[in-house]
Design a protein around this nucleic acid. Structure first.
Length: 274
DNA sequence: CCCAAGACCTGGCGGC
DNA sequence: TGCCGCCAGGTCTTGG
């Protein structure tokens, strides 16, 4: 499900509604997500106040009184704020009940997400500390990206999706940004020019910002914390459009597999490079 | 160190 | 209808 825009949409929706709320209880219904859930989560979290929710890459970080909760939505997770009396659905794995008679409900069919408690600074947690730059911050520059590409034979698309380089750019937005930059996704990173890096920086930022403005991309099951879908899927140029005409030149879009991920592109607008 | 492939899970879809 | 293989928004681990 979620790339950066979907996680940011979730964060914004929750921030306004649960900051300063107090946790009353925690219910675990499935005890293993990507990692095993800490069994005593209820004892640790009860009576703690939620101070803020920040985002780092695709991770949501809830800062509480004595530590932080680090949550990832994996491929299929959603986090919704519902009245506590709302009936359960399949794959509702965790409830965080608030004193407002509302519940933060974590649903994740594939269970690739995670919920981790840390009593320390969340930014120094092993999972967070190793992350690359934020794509929407000023530190994500052409110089930075160009430096990362040198000597690397990995396809440029895989590099853009490597969270140790830049966070939050998943399959949808990497695919779209490469189309908008007119770069073949298969191109070895080392052949990408500085000028192309400049283009990529520009298109990645704009595609992410535009998606956030549209409330994210809903393909199958993404909904924001209020249950609403995102609308960015209506303006995807290439992602999910294999075999359909290019929106720019009408050529047939083709698919290739890179790093095990579908990668659709236009063979005319995104010419083979080296 | 770099990179590709496999692993983790469930559900939905198309094809037979 | 029913079963089967394939595919899906992520990312950690393994092994060459």
């Amino acid at each position: 499900m979620p790339e950066l825009p979907e996680v940011e949409t979730t964060r914004r929706g929750l921030c306004a509604r649960i900051e300063k709320n107090v946790i009353e209880s925690v219910v675990l219904r499935h005890h293993t997500l990507r990692y095993k859930l800490q069994e005593n989560l209820h004892d640790i979290l009860k009576q703690q106040t939620i101070h803020t929710i920040i985002r780092r890459g695709k991770y949501l970080i809830f800062t509480l009184d004595t530590g932080a909760l680090i949550i990832h939505l994996g491929m299929s997770g959603t986090l919704r704020l519902l009245p506590t009396s709302t009936p359960l659905k399949t794959h509702d794995h965790v409830d965080i009940n608030l004193s407002t008679q509302h519940t933060l409900r974590y649903n994740d069919p594939r269970r690739f997400g995670c919920i981790i408690w840390t009593p320390n600074s969340p930014l120094s947690h092993q999972l967070i500390q190793v992350l690359g730059v934020e794509p929407l911050e000023d530190s994500f520059t052409a110089d930075y990206l160009f430096k990362q590409t040198t000597k690397r034979r990995m396809p440029i698309k895989s590099l853009l999706m490597d969270s140790h380089v830049v966070v939050g750019v998943g399959n949808i937005y990497a695919t779209e940004a490469l189309f908008l930059s007119r770069i073949d996704p298969r191109t070895e990173a080392r052949y990408i020019t500085h000028q192309q890096c400049q283009l990529l920086i520009k298109t990645i930022k704009s595609v992410l910002l535009e998606a956030i403005n549209q409330g994210g991309t809903t393909l199958k099951d993404f909904v924001a914390s209020d249950g609403k879908p995102g609308y960015f899927s209506q303006q995807l140029h290439v992602y999910g459009r294999k075999g359909l005409p290019c929106t720019n030149c009408q050529s047939t879009l083709v698919n290739t597999v890179l790093g095990g991920r579908a990668s659709v592109f236009c063979p005319v607008c995104q010419p083979e490079m080296p």
